[in-house]
Write a protein that binds this DNA or RNA. Sequence first.
DNA 1: TTGTTTATGTGTGAAAATTACGCAAATTAT
DNA 2: ATAATTTGCGTAATTTTCACACATAAACAA
Lengths: 229, 229
Amino acid sequence: MKGTYTYEYPRPSVTTDCVIFGFDAEGLSVLLIERGIEPFKGCWAFPGGFMQMDEDAETCARRELEEETGLKDVHVEQFGTFSDVNRDPRGRTVTIAHFALVKKAQVKGADDAAQAKWFPIGSIPPLAFDHDRILRVALKALREKIHFEPVGFELLPQVFTMPQLQDLYESILEVKFDRRNFANKMLKLGILTEVDDGTIRRGTRNPIKYSFNPESYSQMKAKGFRLEF
Amino acid sequence: MKGTYTYEYPRPSVTTDCVIFGFDAEGLSVLLIERGIEPFKGCWAFPGGFMQMDEDAETCARRELEEETGLKDVHVEQFGTFSDVNRDPRGRTVTIAHFALVKKAQVKGADDAAQAKWFPIGSIPPLAFDHDRILRVALKALREKIHFEPVGFELLPQVFTMPQLQDLYESILEVKFDRRNFANKMLKLGILTEVDDGTIRRGTRNPIKYSFNPESYSQMKAKGFRLEF
DNA sequence: TTGTTTATGTGTGAAAATTACGCAAATTAT
DNA sequence: ATAATTTGCGTAATTTTCACACATAAACAA
């Protein structure tokens, strides 16, 4: 692979980066990797790397994601490209930024790979390059996206409770909802399936379990809709 | 500028493209340029070109826009990056796609530059490269954007009428609204200023003139809002 | 000129959606 | 045991959306 490649005009490097969102009882967080080398040694960064000639951006982002964190088969989506002239001190680099949504519970063991660590969205350490800006844009993209698609379900375990779902929405949108109205709205969407876990008790501290119903959702999507919050 | 530039690893070319939206009584349209050379000779394409080492993507898009169409000082915004391995038969190329919103009325004279031509959104000729896909994504981005920001005002003349504004929204969103409800909603937003053109008559075929009020809008934006349609 | 058609502005009641809120039951904590 | 918390359920009040009719002046047709 390594060799010499010559062009008539100078070309920037092209990389991808991946902002990995996870969610649990502590709220929304992102998975970061500590840089072991200069520049920005000791700072934290999103997993990412150079795009190969035989892969497109999303493929690259998924490859880097797996290589650096072990994560695969997750929701990955491009949200912006960052091309400031001086964003990388080593040379001109353009990065195509993605966000990934992962079910944090099922990942707990997977991040043995390297020095990856989850940081709550409110306690982000110093980031390398322009990654702080990238994070802000990623959050904005996620917040807007949640109005059109139930992205939240990518972040929750397969089976979850209404309070969990509400916490998630409140974390992402940074607002508070009335318990009962939130549940009503969600249920009226018709994309939740009640999971029977044996316990039949109701109206109690033991919450009902739900799972997301992709079939209902795709039907719903075909007709066009908006999630209003 | 031209010379030889050598790298250890191969790099794709990086370009920008610009989907230019305009609007008039005939509806929404895009400004295209006819290709005079292969590949895709005779097809139409968005203005665009190679990113220089001393400019970021938006700067590049604006430069190409002015060079190829004469347009400047317009709304330009990135909406996606296209990186399919075979999207350009001449070699690996990544393009950072933007859309521009222009006041078509004020442009009529500016497109003497080259073989630029407006095409209604419903009558698009064969496009070069993956520009048909790029156009579809651009339209989707515009439709979503209009729910969060009054982008429409970039497309109308400084002074416009309520029916014009409604036509614009109907063209972009491809729906029909009730005249009275649309006007009520728009006026309630508080971002329109009535323009006194001397004529004091009301409730007649002679429509009231409005202009967009950026101050009210930025106040409104600070509080956070959504345009619902 | 005259009559006809079309586009525009205005307001109101009905329907729907949103919001606010109280209570009872079971788990958890003390 | 007792108290506090979490959860589910339902309803009344409010707000927002929606559908709709008419009067006026301009544009058009004769």
